[in-house]
């Protein structure tokens, strides 16, 4: 399934908004994905603290979940988000890269279920977690 991994990486890196945020796919395969978002002043949500806006965290989590679905051995092709819930545990530390890790833990012919976590340099206390369902397309 090397081809699909390559395909997924190309797919993610061809996304204009992923480029605008400088997202990098650092790991993919077997229903798991890892994406990083470098700190960028354009993404600040609170100018007084320099903390990244929750919306940017949503984007990296959504992208990472989609990549995890596409990399699942049972996924025939593309995917789209049906629903995504994000819990914000704490503010991301300004200046640090955000890393999102997603796992597609169950997939049927029509729906994929995904969980994801976003952390900064502190791996132990997530910045945010996500849970979502995605479409399974191309079968």
């Amino acid at each position: 399934m090397v081809d699909k991994t390559v395909l997924a990486r190309q797919f993610i890196e061809a996304i204009p908004h992923a480029r605008a945020l400088n997202l990098t796919l650092t790991h993919i395969g077997e229903g798991e994905a890892e994406i990083t978002l470098p700190y960028n002043e354009d993404l600040i949500g609170d100018p007084r603290t320099g903390v990244i806006h929750g919306g940017a965290i949503s984007t990296i989590l959504d992208t990472c979940c989609g990549a995890a679905v596409m990399s699942h051995p049972s996924a025939p092709g593309g995917t789209a988000t049906i629903d995504l819930r994000i819990d914000y545990m704490r503010a991301a530390t300004p200046g640090q890269t955000i890393t999102a890790r997603a796992t597609c833990y169950h997939i049927t012919r029509n729906v994929a279920f995904v969980r994801a976590t976003a952390v900064d340099n502190d791996n132990d206390l997530p910045v945010a977690t996500a849970a979502g369902s995605f479409t399974v397309e191309g079968n």
Binding site: I15, P16, H17, G55, T59, D62, T63, A80
Partner: peptide
């Protein structure tokens, strides 16, 4: 804007952008 696109084949706005827009 073109930089908001998440699926260049359709094309469609990125789901993360939609979430961010709603949250903002």
């Amino acid at each position: 804007d073109d930089k908001l696109i998440g699926n260049p084949f359709l094309p469609a706005i990125h789901g993360g952008v939609t979430a961010a827009f709603l949250e903002v």
